[in-house]
Write a protein that binds this DNA or RNA. Sequence first.
DNA 1: TCCATAATTTGAACTCAATACAAATTTATA
DNA 2: TATAAATTTGTATTGAGTTCAAATTATGGA
Lengths: 140, 140
Amino acid sequence: MENLINILEDANIKPTIERLSILNYLDRNHNHPTASMIFDEVETKIPTISKTTVYNSLKLFIENGIVTPLYITGSEIRYDFTTKPHHHFFCENCGKIFDLVVDCPIFSKKHFQGHLIRQQHGYFRGICKDCLEKEAKEHH
Amino acid sequence: MENLINILEDANIKPTIERLSILNYLDRNHNHPTASMIFDEVETKIPTISKTTVYNSLKLFIENGIVTPLYITGSEIRYDFTTKPHHHFFCENCGKIFDLVVDCPIFSKKHFQGHLIRQQHGYFRGICKDCLEKEAKEHH
DNA sequence: TCCATAATTTGAACTCAATACAAATTTATA
DNA sequence: TATAAATTTGTATTGAGTTCAAATTATGGA
Ligand SMILES: [Mn+2]
Ligand SMILES: [Mn+2]
Ligand SMILES: [Zn+2]
Ligand SMILES: [Zn+2]
């Protein structure tokens, strides 16, 4: 928790109870949750918290570079507490988003064909390993 | 246009006037338009068309693999009339989405770490070449 | 401690792309 | 022509995310 306070202060964000609780959730859950999922859990610890505070805090985290928003599902934003760029796999069956370690030669580039790169995103969509195995079992 | 009819029929989609007009727009505009942009132009040719038909048609096109939805901006779906996987660059300043030709070694893979891949997406976000040049001019 | 100010949080109203759905229209088939 | 099937339409609805002013809390000097 002391670590999380430092992370916020280093990003020039005042570490309020609400922001710490939200960041703590993201720190414990690296499964790319939605704002709603974050709210539901944080609400059990801070019953008075509002959804607007969750959105406000996430926006702050994003603007200050300690959280990355993922626009993958098409229906809602998923939040990733990380700084390092990495790939994702989105399962169209169970909705889970997996981290993938891909040796991507573009990750080191800051410019590409004249464009200034601020973020890099690579992701695949399909059926995840777990869902494939379940499917195979059912067909027997 | 005859070509577009064939594309729809090959995808088992009945080539109605509305669907042809929508696909024709996508064929002429490879700038990854929104549903609203498509509707606005098609409406000038088919004044009676409804937005629901635009959404229905795009859904059909996606389900049958002749159009790819892009979840990049976070606010609305952009549509790409293409089959071949390629990279994109999204300009956070002007909102344009550029096609990028990147030699990506993963594009050939159908499986990755046990997951079944159906789609592959790679995109960068930042400031595009045009916006950078405009910015440079203004600062002088 | 008191008070003024700034920062943060809250909740209700609102936005808007996308969806649901039943009625209306068009097309296909006998 | 008559009937059924497919398609289109318009309205209502959804729901994630935003706006914004009021309420609350934190800050800092007198
Ligand atoms: Mn991740
Ligand atoms: Mn494209
Ligand atoms: Zn899955
Ligand atoms: Zn631009």
